[in-house]
Amino acid sequence: MNPIKILIIYAHPDDESFGNAGTIAKYTTEKNVEFHIACATRGEAGKLGDPPLTTREELGAYREMEMAQATRILGVKQIHYLDFLDGTLHMLSDTENEQLVKSIVKVILDVKPHIIITFPEDGISLHKDHIAIHFATKAALDIVKNTYTIPKVYYSVVPKSIYHSRGLLDRGVDDQFVTIKEDIDLYRKQKLEALKKYKTQIFSVNKVYPGLLDSNDWSIIPKYEFYQLIRLYGKSVDGSTYHETSILDHLSDYA
């Protein structure tokens, strides 16, 4: 039986491990699921590590290596780099943005995923390049819909209640619009191991999960990853009244 294909569309190496590592590990382990990642950049504008592990000129190649190691732990099938420059996605010219959209369209039509996961409108963290990927992916979906019907499209989200508990009042999706709390309890160790591969991004890991790297205690990682269903078989979904138990719900025709 052919695998269910899931395409994650993000801006940087490590976005997948912060947002979806538990989900990826869970479904590559438990189900016949094949994950692909469309990564717009190689993270060339990111941190170099503390102390620095590479040079600014070589950072893109270094982070590509880190991503290969992290996604191997999670069981990702393939990474599709779109070859745009980190830190520039939010300020592309109209022509360059059109090229970004076309690059996403190409990956979608090459992979023909059953599920697409990407950033919500706030980019999860308000990162400008994340937000740019959100809008580029939306544009790509509008182009693709007349050629290929994608069964399900999700945003990877953080509920407002979680951000509010951290004192961040300007972020997150209203809890009522969270379609799924994906239980990743059994896969938090894999998520830790994937995050540890991003040695250049130690500052970001420590910021999101204080104490995680020093303690090596995967129980610091929350038990859930959250998703908001946006489209089901090409039709928009009212997330406030629509809830699921798994991102594989409603895919019985493919399972």
Rank of each mutant, 00 (worst) to 15 (best):
P52T: 03
T88C: 06
H127G: 12
N97R: 10
R56N: 04
D185L: 15
E64Y: 01
L192V: 00
P51K: 11
N32L: 10
R56Y: 00
R72Y: 13
D238N: 13
D174T: 02
L251E: 06
T179N: 01
A68H: 00
Y224H: 14
L229Y: 08
D185R: 15
K235E: 13
V76M: 08
L192G: 02
H250A: 15
N146R: 15
E98H: 10
S17F: 00
R63W: 05
G167D: 14
E182I: 14
Y27W: 09
I79E: 08
E98R: 10
G234F: 00
I221Q: 13
E64V: 04
K181Y: 08
G19E: 02
D185I: 13
K47A: 02
K191Y: 07
E193W: 10
F226K: 02
F203N: 11
K102T: 02
D175P: 13
L186N: 15
E64D: 12
P159D: 05
A21Q: 00
I184D: 09
L109Q: 11
K77V: 00
I124G: 02
D249I: 06
D86F: 05
I116R: 02
L169P: 02
D183W: 09
G239C: 07
N2C: 10
T147E: 12
D129K: 11
R56M: 01
E98G: 14
Y254G: 06
G239L: 06
I9Q: 03
Y254Q: 05
G19Q: 05
V157P: 01
A25M: 05
K196T: 13
D129P: 14
D142M: 10
Y163F: 13
I24K: 04
T245F: 04
K106R: 10
L74F: 14
I9T: 01
L74W: 13
Y242F: 15
D174F: 07
S103T: 02
G43D: 11
K138M: 11
T29K: 09
